Amino acid sequence: MRRVFVADTLVPGQSLVVDGQTGHHFARVLRLEVGETLVVAGTNGPHDAVAVSVDSKRGTATLEIGGGTPRRDPIVRVLIVQGMAKGDKVDEVIQRTTELGVWGVWITAMERTVGRLTADRASAKVVRWQRIAEEAASQSQRDIVPQVAYYSAAPGLQTVLAEVSPHRVLLLDERETKRGIRQALKSSTSNWRELPGPVVLVVGPEGGFSDAERSWWVDTFRAESVTLGGRILRTETAGLVAATAVFCESGELGG
């Protein structure tokens, strides 16, 4: 079912006008019709809604909010800190991990990042990445749109990451050969539904982590290096595989 995301608390019976880019998409691209039902995901969860009027010229739709619907998002919050990668690889990371159910994707420049972003380019990229996340969240019937952000240096990342109080920080390190991610996750907690903060998965760029970065993550966040097995995965693949392992271990994949 089609889904709209709004930063509002929803109340059954209220009238909600959807405009801007989202309204244009629903009214003129998807051709939403009066009487059609959809889901509106607000700050207090998803709700049923029905279109009561659609203005294709203005690109707006008015919805009447109904009752709440079952939540679909994972209880466990997974945050991916992705080393900035070349080309459209970040787009793929955001799309696939959003579909899977991650809580956030934070892109950061690392020592071996190729092609750093200027401030202007970074702002434009974040807008594009957030739109990709919203489209993927809608397609996969998420309750939230993951937060996408870009950090050009470790100090800025350190401040915001400390604010979310990570439960665990796992460094997906090609040099690690003994401690696997499954072993690390099994020792994580006895109750996945009561984690105080997100599980953070740190993925290096194409060239991997430098020794200084490994030390920084260990010293700053007590990060644990883990392996994903004997294969060397691409940077755009590693986070998706690791997030899948977290959701599998926590029972979020239907187990």
Rank of each mutant, 00 (worst) to 15 (best):
Q158R: 15
R193I: 00
V241Q: 09
A7Q: 15
R193N: 13
S152F: 01
G104C: 06
Q21M: 04
R28C: 11
D73S: 12
A122N: 07
E206D: 08
E176R: 12
I65K: 08
E64A: 11
E194Q: 14
E213T: 09
E206R: 02
A133R: 07
L233M: 12
V54G: 05
R71L: 11
D211A: 13
G20H: 11
F247E: 07
R96L: 12
R58I: 00
K57W: 01
E36N: 04
G101L: 11
A49C: 08
S225E: 14
V148Y: 06
V202P: 01
V4C: 06
S15R: 15
R128W: 08
D48P: 01
R121D: 14
V40C: 10
T159W: 02
V145C: 08
F221T: 06
D19L: 01
G230V: 07
I75S: 12
F26I: 15
S140F: 07
K86S: 13
A153W: 02
E194H: 10
E163L: 10
V114R: 06
F209I: 01
E252Q: 13
D120H: 09
P166Q: 13
R2T: 02
I65V: 15
V11C: 03
G83E: 03
A223I: 03
A238F: 00
V199Q: 11
V203K: 00
G42T: 10
S225C: 09
S215A: 15
L32M: 15
R193L: 03
L16E: 11
V102N: 02
P70G: 12
V126T: 11
T43Y: 02
R71I: 03
